[in-house]
Nucleic acid binder design. Sequence first.
DNA 1: GACTATGATTGTCA
DNA 2: TGACAATCATAGTC
Length: 367
Amino acid sequence: MDDQQRLTHPSQGQVNMSSVMPQAYDGPYGPGDHGDQRKQEIGDVLQQIMTITDQSLDEAQARKHTLNCHRMKPALFNVLCEIKEKTVLSIRNTQEEEPPDPQLMRLDNMLIAEGVAGPEKGGGSTAAASATAAASGGQPDSAIEHSDYRAKLAQIRQIYHTELEKYEQACNEFTTHVVNLLREQSRTRPIQPKEIERMVGIIRKKFSAIEMQLKQSTCEAVMILRSRFLDARRKRRNFTKNATEILTEYFYSHLSNPYPSEEVKEELARKCGISVSQVSNWFGNKRIRYKKNIGKAQEEANLYAAKAASAASSQMVTDPSSPTGSSNYSLPSSQSQMAGQGGMYMNLNGGENYPGGENSWGLEDSE
DNA sequence: GACTATGATTGTCA
DNA sequence: TGACAATCATAGTC
């Protein structure tokens, strides 16, 4: 039996589309079988459905009850089922599992990495702690800023979780509400469990879009916080006068070979209260800037030479056995003596131990 | 606000 | 991988 036949054939016990259409209706029991009366009844039922939303809740409940008990209800329900069957076909295949949103995954990963989402790790910013430590080299200032950063991050974390909780709660409430509504409606119109699932899916999708916005703005907030607190360039602090003094002294007392070993760098870092990489940076910058501005550097070198010489002479008075008084480091013997006597610095003008002279840190005769 | 000093970063090279 | 050179970005000074 084809569709057309089925739709118009009354013997199957089905009420078809045409049965609710007055112009095509012959009555479920055949033509002339009180057709007009039944048409009227169905018309009434439909009218009641159309007006049900305008009525008060109690009234509507009562009407709903009447409708449910109506003898034509199963027949009408079948019609609706049939219509549904036809229309749902088009959406049936649209519910395939979607892959996880890469953008959402990226946001999630970032929030976890930053300690905003996921389990709280040591104040919510282990990553921040390591980043700060690396950037600051353990300066006292950084401790204050670090705790400040942690506090702000914890604040962001708290807001994020509060908002997320709110969204989830609202989503659950709304979903429950809609599911209940659909279940209730399923008594008067055909609603399959799959449709309810689909509706739940739609709601969840809408809420996850809101959630994504929340995650996005949280990420932005963390980025701003990070750039404000952790960007090393932004938080550049000049070294203490003492630290600069120590480094400069070492530089000029090793001018023929201003390349401290790792051990010396560590020692300098410890004395200056900075990191080894900062020491490396400092020497890198110093060497380049020394070369670039040799005239000015010589002035500075002579200043340190004079200082070293006076220190050495006073050392000689108090401890004549000491070979050097200018440096706290275990200098190579020749340099120590030169530095102790101010010889190396004086040689600057003679062009022997600085890049402007014969030794341009080619390192062949650095020691 | 302009200018300089300076610590840090980045890209290149040996 | 360390050094160098260029550059950035902030601090400090005038």
